Simulated assay, not measured.
Amino acid sequence: MHFQHSTDIWRDFPGLVPGVMSVAGVTKDVRVDDRLAHYGEIAAKRLATASEGELPEIQAWRRAFSAMGLKPTQYRCASESLLRRFRKEGALPRLHPLIDLCNAVSLAYAVPVAVFDVSRISSYVEVRYAAGDETYVTFSGQTERPPAGEVVFADADAMAHARRWTNRQSGRSAVRDTTTDVLIVAEALHDTARADIEALTAGLAGEMRALWRATPAPVLLTASSPRFTF
């Protein structure tokens, strides 16, 4: 199984910095409360001096969404949506300890962090422009057809595991109580993206080792080395 971005994505977004890792042995019976509080404090301090839309990480994604022909205040990247909700409500809904942790890390770094149940993926995931024949399953179980040209996370069976790049993940490969093995992808486009993604993935890998005794080896992908095999 592997993960990669298409050559067209690298061509059109040369500032992209993706950090990727696979994690095996995930369970739902760990406590992450103190870690959520830690990352929440970091996010709260940032939001005390600037709105989420003013953060350079979010501004870079807004420019990318505009380049894709999307209105960035209508379709927001996942980290902006999380920050927006966190600013308004002071907390995020609790879903699963791994998702809760990754959402908290996403808040702290203002960077989208996607988590996929690999048992629900066929052969690979490629971030690419949709051909128009992909199927996307919502969290409520409805199916959608992303239009040709939309950026999707697609597998070998033409299932779209995310729409509009970092806007919305699919319910098909969402983490469940029975999930054990996952693929985690963090992506950034801002000026200090490389240093921030390195710090984010190293920190998240440390959390995986401490909480689940996992042994992830995070990798930063580039246009010249775009594939992560796991």
Rank of each mutant, 00 (worst) to 15 (best):
M1E: 10
M1N: 11
H2P: 06
F3T: 13
I9W: 05
I9K: 09
I9C: 10
P14C: 04
G15C: 08
G19R: 03
V20R: 00
A24M: 12
G25L: 02
V26C: 06
T27W: 04
T27E: 13
V30M: 12
R31N: 15
D33P: 05
A37G: 03
A37D: 12
A37P: 03
E41W: 09
R46H: 12
E54Y: 08
E54N: 11
E57Q: 11
E57V: 00
Q59Y: 07
W61M: 08
A64P: 09
A64H: 10
S66F: 13
A67C: 13
K71E: 13
P72I: 07
P72R: 11
C77Y: 02
S79L: 05
E80S: 15
R84N: 13
R84V: 08
F86S: 03
K88I: 08
L95S: 15
P97S: 11
L98P: 07
L98V: 12
L98I: 07
D100R: 10
L101D: 07
C102E: 12
N103H: 11
V105N: 02
Y109P: 07
Y109N: 12
V111Q: 03
P112E: 05
F116Y: 14
F116W: 12
V118I: 12
R120T: 07
V125T: 15
V125N: 05
V127Q: 05
A131D: 14
G132R: 00
D133S: 12
D133C: 08
F139Y: 15
P146N: 02
F153R: 05
A154P: 03
A156F: 03
D157M: 09
A158T: 14
A158M: 14
M159D: 15
M159I: 15
N167C: 11
Q169C: 05
R176F: 03
V182I: 06
L183S: 01
V185F: 00
V185C: 04
A186Q: 08
A188W: 00
L189M: 10
L189Q: 10
D191F: 07
A193D: 02
A195C: 03
A195Q: 14
D196T: 00
I197E: 04
A199K: 10
L200F: 01
L204P: 03
A205P: 01
A205S: 01
G206D: 01
M208A: 08
A210T: 09
L211K: 08
A217P: 08
A217Y: 03
A217K: 13
V219Q: 09
V219P: 08
S225N: 14
P226V: 04
T229P: 11
